[in-house]
Amino acid sequence: MNIKSIYFSVIAVLVFSVGFSQVEISQKIQDSKIAQSSENKLYFIDFWATWCGPCVYANEYLTVLQKQFSNDFYVVSLSEENSAIIEKHLKKHPSELAVFSDFNSQTMKKFGVQFLPYGVLINAYGNKLWEGSPTDFKPNDLQRFLRRSNIRGNVDDVFIVKNNNLSESSIQDYKPTKPIEIKRLNTVDNLSLEVSKEDSYVKLEGNLQEVLSYLLKTHASQLYLSKDDNASYQIYVHTSVLEHAFDEVLEELGLVAETLTKEKECLVMDFKNAQLWNTHQIDWGEDAESFLIGDTEIQANDVYLDDVKFRLSLVLDLPIKYINIKDFNTSLHDWQIHYKYYSLMEQNLLDVYGINIEKKNDEITTYHIKKAPK
Rank of each mutant, 00 (worst) to 15 (best):
V303S: 09
D157T: 06
T218Y: 01
I180L: 12
Q234T: 11
Y339K: 07
E358I: 10
Y236I: 11
V161M: 06
N104P: 01
L349G: 08
N165R: 14
S149G: 07
T135S: 08
P54I: 08
L215D: 08
Y57S: 14
I34P: 01
N190C: 03
S32I: 02
E265H: 08
K321F: 12
I171C: 01
L215C: 10
L318V: 09
S167N: 11
N361P: 06
E363P: 00
M108I: 00
G254Y: 02
L78K: 02
D229F: 09
F137G: 07
N324E: 14
S21Q: 13
Y353S: 09
R152I: 14
F73Q: 00
N230F: 05
N127P: 02
A300F: 04
I325M: 09
M269Q: 04
L316F: 01
G285W: 06
P134V: 05
Q347A: 15
D307C: 02
P94F: 03
G153H: 06
K110D: 06
L121A: 06
A58Y: 05
I45G: 01
F69Q: 05
N104A: 09
Y224K: 13
D141E: 11
D156E: 13
D270P: 08
P117L: 04
E80F: 15
I160E: 06
Q66W: 03
V56G: 00
S343L: 12
D317L: 03
Q143F: 04
Y236T: 03
L204M: 06
F16A: 14
L191M: 13
A84D: 15
K360P: 03
I357V: 15
E243I: 05
H280L: 11
G112R: 09
P117I: 02
S26L: 03
A220P: 07
K374D: 10
Q234L: 15
V161E: 10
T365F: 05
S170Y: 06
L121C: 07
N40A: 00
D173Q: 13
E205L: 12
V56I: 15
P94E: 07
I151H: 07
K4S: 13
S331L: 14
W51D: 08
E346L: 12
V241A: 01
E248K: 13
N123M: 07
Y7K: 14
F271A: 01
L260K: 15
L62D: 00
K309R: 14
L344V: 13
N207L: 00
L253T: 02
L42G: 00
H244S: 10
A288D: 03
E346T: 09
K371R: 14
D362W: 09
K264V: 10
F47I: 03
Y341Q: 12
F291L: 00
Y353Q: 08
S21F: 07
E80H: 13
L292I: 00
G254D: 07
A98T: 04
E181Q: 15
L223A: 05
Y214C: 05
L250P: 08
D295F: 00
A98L: 06
